[in-house]
């Protein structure tokens, strides 16, 4: 039945090699990048970037800290003048809403809504790692100044 001709076998080998190569290339690509450029995600990124101007002084004063769960937290309201406290609260709430939406949208944009929790955990770790010196960060349940 089979004709064990060498040229054909080597052709088969080549075809298989090409396919395995393509699969690997795709794997590397898929592993290398998550989709974060959808309109929804871009809008959230932009909103968060603009809000950062308002939040940065609050991070620096210690009023707001980088929480362990991928959110920000008003940890010392007394550090904010009373007149600005409502604004600070609103900024924190808006930021956390955007962050929750961001994690959800990234998971969804990549076809795996169930990844939301892992996306959140990954971001939480990176926010903490990259917080600037002087900012307050939460490790476990306790807060410390970076």
């Amino acid at each position: 039945m089979k004709s064990p001709s060498m040229p054909s076998a080597s052709l088969t080998g080549r075809v298989a090699a090409v396919f395995i190569g393509l699969a690997l290339a795709f794997a590397v690509h898929a592993q290398g990048n998550l989709e974060i450029d959808t309109p929804a995600i871009s809008a959230l990124r932009k909103a968060m970037q603009q809000r950062h101007a308002q939040l940065a002084p609050l991070y620096a004063s210690g009023a707001v800290g980088i929480a362990a769960d991928g959110t920000v937290s008003l940890r010392d309201a007394a550090a904010v003048p009373l007149a600005q406290r409502a604004q600070a609260n609103a900024a924190v709430a808006a930021e956390n809403a955007d962050r929750a939406a961001l994690y959800r949208e990234i998971a969804r944009a990549n076809g795996h809504p169930e990844w939301e929790g892992e996306v959140r955990r990954t971001f939480a770790q990176r926010w903490l790692d990259r917080a600037q010196p002087g900012w307050w960060v939460q490790q476990g349940a306790s807060w410390s100044r970076k």
Partner: peptide
């Protein structure tokens, strides 16, 4: 192979994505 890749959470890619967004924000 494609299916397998997508079942497991791509931790390295997620970290890269997080860093890109944190840089921007």
């Amino acid at each position: 192979a494609c299916v397998t890749i997508n079942i497991y959470f791509p931790a390295a890619a997620a970290e890269k994505a997080a860093d890109r967004i944190i840089d921007e924000v």
